[in-house]
């Protein structure tokens, strides 16, 4: 449960992160806007409230792990890592440039704070199960968080991983599903229906929660609920809006893989109260 001050602080953090996500995508001239913005509030609560991590010691053995399985939302992750202090905010301008440590999709060998390599959809949840199993084998209290896309769960490997996580009772694993309803080719349920999501994961043996993915308090409560759950992994289905925070990007599949133009950036920043 967040108190009023925490909600204010996290809301302001999320606003700053959105500003930086839009700026870096505009500077990069390519990248994924819609899904970075939809996932951003969940990431804000994870990185600035829930997770135990130490940006001054990224390899701290008892840290919580985060896996961005929907790796194309890398700009949102990079903004969180920079704001948390893993690397200078200035680096964000180098997104997707030759020689930058900020690759188009997350790379554990290049970016401090990135735990695994993701971007080929469907693979992150398996890696998260492995990280959680390693922590359990080593007797560590560390938890593993994994952010999935809703289009991403069309990949069969997600369900292999879902089966394994439940089979091995990996209760130090919490997946969040960014249910924004859109993928590149259009509405997820028209491209390839994935609903009902909750009943599917329930049937696979998961503890399932559903929240408004832009309600910081609700996200924090769900994460606390997940941490208290024993014997099974937790899925938090976060109902979100693609492009959230910039009205002319919201609910549009066309901004899945398109960065803001200069004009769109200035209008978006104006909307976010950033001069």
């Amino acid at each position: 449960m967040l108190d009023e001050l925490q909600v204010q602080e996290l809301t302001e953090k999320a606003r700053q992160l959105r500003v930086d996500v839009l700026k870096m995508l505009n500077a990069a001239r390519s990248g994924h806007t819609g899904g970075s913005l939809s996932a951003l509030d969940a990431l804000t609560v994870l990185f600035f409230h829930q997770m135990r991590h130490d940006p001054s010691n990224p390899q701290w053995a008892d840290r919580d792990h985060f896996v961005l399985s929907k790796g194309h939302a890398a700009p949102a992750l990079y903004a969180c890592l920079a704001h948390a202090g893993y690397f200078p905010l200035d680096d964000l301008k180098t997104l997707r440039r030759l020689g930058s440590h900020l690759q188009g999709h997350p790379d554990m060998r290049k970016t401090p704070g990135v735990e695994v390599c993701t971007g080929s959809l469907g693979q992150g949840l398996s890696q998260a199960v492995g990280l959680a199993l390693a922590a359990r084998l080593q007797g560590r209290a560390s938890r593993t968080y994994c952010l999935l896309g809703d289009g991403e769960v069309q990949e069969g490997q997600i369900w292999e991983a879902a089966m394994a996580a439940a089979h091995y009772g990996v209760d130090n694993l919490c997946a969040l599903l960014d249910w924004n309803g859109l993928q590149i080719d259009g509405e997820v349920d028209k491209v390839m229906r994935v609903t009902p999501l909750g009943p599917k994961f329930l049937a696979f043996g998961w503890h399932v929660l559903e929240v408004d993915g832009h309600d910081l308090n609700a996200i924090a409560r769900a994460l606390a609920d997940a941490a208290a759950c024993t014997g099974k992994p937790t899925l938090i289905i976060a109902r979100t809006v693609k492009g959230k925070g910039v009205p002319f990007f919201e609910h549009k599949a066309s901004y899945h893989g398109v960065p803001p133009s200069d004009d769109e950036l200035s209008r978006a920043l104006e909307h976010l109260g950033h001069s």
Partner: peptide, 20 residues
């Protein structure tokens, strides 16, 4: 991993990233 090789390799990657 059961008959699920893709997930097996992914879990192995996570275990290695976690120090095993």
């Amino acid at each position: 991993a059961g008959i699920a090789e893709a997930n097996m390799l992914g879990m192995a990657a996570g275990l290695a990233a976690g120090g095993q």
